[in-house]
């Protein structure tokens, strides 16, 4: 699972470079997120703008990442494409995470 990571202000931004987070890669995604965020900033922003499909396994892997970072660190989401947004809305997980429409908005909100 390819991820790229950078620091923006006080946040670590992790961008998913794959177009799918599905059952085939959910475990690899979870492990990659753990190693990429190890020892990083308190807020991790997961950039999903390149992801055009997620299933319930992928959603579970994102929830697992949030729980792994808790309680001291926070996972926020940005760049949900329509199909990804739908899965978060239907499962009401959009109310559990802070969701920003773009990376830019998330960075601005964080530095405000």
């Amino acid at each position: 699972m390819e991820l790229s990571t950078k620091t923006e202000g006080h946040m670590q931004v992790v961008s998913v470079l794959h177009s799918r987070i599905d059952a085939a890669v959910a475990l690899a995604f979870k492990e990659a997120m753990r190693s990429q965020t190890d020892g990083g900033a308190d807020t991790v922003l997961l950039d999903l703008q390149k992801v055009d499909f997620i299933d319930s396994s992928g959603l579970g892997a994102i929830v697992a990442t949030m729980k792994h970072l808790s309680p001291d660190r926070k996972l926020v989401l940005a760049g949900l494409t329509p199909a990804v947004d739908k899965v978060f809305r239907l499962t009401r997980m959009d109310s559990v995470f802070s969701v920003f429409s773009s990376l830019h908005d998330a960075v601005e909100a964080q530095s405000a």
Partner: peptide
């Protein structure tokens, strides 16, 4: 059934969404 997400973060469900999504859609 829809998963109960009004719970502590550490109790947040990581699975069990599949049949809910199928039946919903």
């Amino acid at each position: 059934m829809a998963q109960d997400i009004d719970v502590d973060i550490m109790d947040m469900p990581e699975g069990g969404f599949g049949w809910f999504l199928i039946k919903d859609l």
